[in-house]
Simulated assay, not measured.
Amino acid sequence: MIALITGGANGIGAAVAWRLAADGAQLVLADVNEAAGSALAAELGAVYVRCDVSVLADNEAAVAAAVSAYGGLDLAFLNAGVTTGCGLGEDFDLAAYRRAMGVNLDGVVFGVHAALPALTASGGTIVATASMAGMIGVESDPVYSASKHAVIGLVRSLAGQLAPAGIRVQALCPSFADTAILGDNRALLAELGFPILPVSEVADTFFQLLASEGTGECWFVIPGRESAPFAFRRLPGPR
C-alpha cells in the first residue's frame, strides 16, 4: 500500500503511520512541522514533504511526491486539523477563523482534489479526520465544529459520486483524543472528569474503517464504546 498522511508528524497521523509502516506500507508524511515530520519519516523509512494543507499547490506536491517515489497512491489520509478558541462575538478572530477553515475544510477539499487522479488509477481510499464535533454543537469552539460538520457533509456527499471510480470515502470521528490539539482544554477536561482517548484507540478505529467495505460512513470513536459507523436518521421527505 502507498499512503499519504497529512498532519502525519504527530498525534493520530503518526499513530496510523507507525501501524501502516509495520504492515509494510510505503508512506509520505505531509506536515508543516519540518523537524518532527523529517524525524518520523527517517524512523519509518518514509518520505517527508512540508505541506500546508490550506494551500492547494502543497497538496498537489504531496501527491506528486508519492507518485514520484512509489509510482502511485492507494490511500489519502487527510488528517491535519486545528482548533480556533474564538467565538463569533467580541472574541471573533478573523485570522483564527481563516486558519481553521483553511486547515480543517480546505485541507480536505484540496487533498481530495489533488489525490483524485492517482486514486482513480488505483481504486483507492480517502479517509478524512472529522470529529464528534462534526455531529454535535460545540459551544466552546463553534467555528471548529462548523468546519468538522462540513467535512462530514463532504464525505457523505462524495461517496456516491466517487463510487463508480472504485474510490471509497470515509470519515474518522474521534471524541477528545490525546493530541496537541487539546491545548488548554486538557486541564478543563480533567477537571470535568471527561475521559481522553488514547491515540492508539483512534488508530484502532482507523484500521477497522479501512478494512470495512463501506463508503460515506462516519465512524465514531468514543471512550468506553465500540466504534462503528454512526447511523444517521433519514430526513423527512415531502408529503
Rank of each mutant, 00 (worst) to 15 (best):
V16D: 02
R233K: 13
G137W: 11
A80S: 07
A39F: 06
D184W: 06
R98L: 00
E34V: 15
V155T: 10
C51H: 05
L75Y: 01
L116R: 05
V202F: 13
N185A: 11
A180V: 00
L105Q: 00
L78P: 01
T205A: 15
I152A: 03
L182A: 13
N33E: 09
W18V: 12
W219M: 08
A96L: 07
R50P: 09
V55H: 01
V47C: 12
A41R: 01
G13A: 09
S122G: 12
A9H: 04
C218R: 00
W18R: 15
S157F: 05
A35C: 08
L154N: 07
L73V: 06
V28T: 13
G89F: 08
L188W: 12
A21T: 03
S68T: 15
E217D: 08
S157L: 10
G85N: 02
V63L: 08
V109K: 00
A30I: 08
L189P: 07
L75C: 06
E60I: 07
P174F: 02
G216I: 09
G123I: 11
G13Q: 03
N185Y: 09
D141F: 00
L75M: 06
D23S: 12
A65Q: 09
A65D: 10
K148A: 01
S157D: 11
V108W: 04
V143K: 09
N59I: 08
A57N: 13
L188P: 08
A22P: 03
A69I: 12
A39L: 06
S227N: 07
N185F: 09
E201W: 12
T179M: 03
G193V: 14
G72P: 09
R168K: 15
A228G: 11
T205P: 03
E201T: 14
F232L: 08
S38C: 11
T84R: 04
R233N: 12
T205D: 07
D204T: 12
W219T: 04
M101S: 03
I136S: 07
A100P: 01
G85P: 03
A69W: 13
S68I: 08
A133G: 15
L189Y: 14
V47M: 09
V155M: 07
D141Y: 01
R99P: 00
Y144I: 02
A128H: 00
A180L: 02
A133R: 06
E60L: 11
V138K: 05
T205N: 09
S200A: 15
C86D: 03
G216V: 03
A9E: 01
L4Q: 06
A21H: 05
L162I: 04
E60S: 11
P195M: 14
C51W: 02
A159F: 10
P195Q: 14
A15L: 06
V53R: 00
A128M: 00
F230M: 08
G7W: 00
A133I: 11
A203G: 03
G71W: 12
I181R: 01
V103L: 03
Q170S: 05
I196R: 05
N104C: 00
R19E: 04
A177N: 05
D141M: 04
V82T: 03
V49A: 09
V63I: 12
G89D: 14
L4T: 10
D91P: 07
E201G: 06
D58I: 05
L29K: 10
R99D: 00
P198Q: 14
